[in-house]
């Protein structure tokens, strides 16, 4: 990956994620993963899904704003997601399963935080809560 802020498309061999509440899987391009590098524009920690907005600069210099979702806070907490996990301006790498229609939204498979910590996606196994 040459470009620091490039969008890299993987047509992966990942198994499609099992079905998850709230809106289902019909909209998603199951088995595909897009890796985004960009800066956090917003982090909404709410029901029914948390939403991470990331500004991603393309080769042409234009910024595309991606919105990536997780499940609800109570579901994602065991996987390490906190209200304070992202701050505006954080540089992150986000792997998402995009929607089929090609618009810049998807659901998070994995996020690498500025400190190198990796948070898993919707199906991730729970990690121990802080202090455990």
């Amino acid at each position: 990956m040459r470009r620091r802020l490039a969008i890299v498309l993987f047509v992966g061999v990942l198994m499609s994620a099992p079905l998850f509440a709230h809106h289902g899987s019909a909209a998603f391009d199951n088995g595909k993963t897009v890796v985004l590098k960009g800066t956090v524009a917003q982090w909404v920690y709410s029901n029914p899904h948390c939403l991470l907005t990331v500004d991603v600069k393309g080769e042409d210099g234009k910024v595309v704003q991606w919105v990536a979702e997780t499940q609800a806070p109570s579901i994602m907490y065991p996987a390490g997601y906190r209200k304070s996990s992202f701050k505006i301006g954080d540089e992150v790498t986000v792997s998402v399963e995009p929607v089929k229609n090609g618009l810049p939204i998807g659901r998070i498979r994995e996020v690498v935080l500025p400190n190198g910590t990796t948070l898993g996606g919707i199906a991730s196994a729970p990690v121990s809560p802080k202090g455990q």
Partner: peptide, 16 residues
């Protein structure tokens, strides 16, 4: 919150 989510994500995901 459901309405906000639908506007940002759900309706966009459903566009053809």
């Amino acid at each position: 919150e459901q309405d906000a989510y639908d506007k940002i994500f759900g309706s966009v995901a459903s566009q053809k």
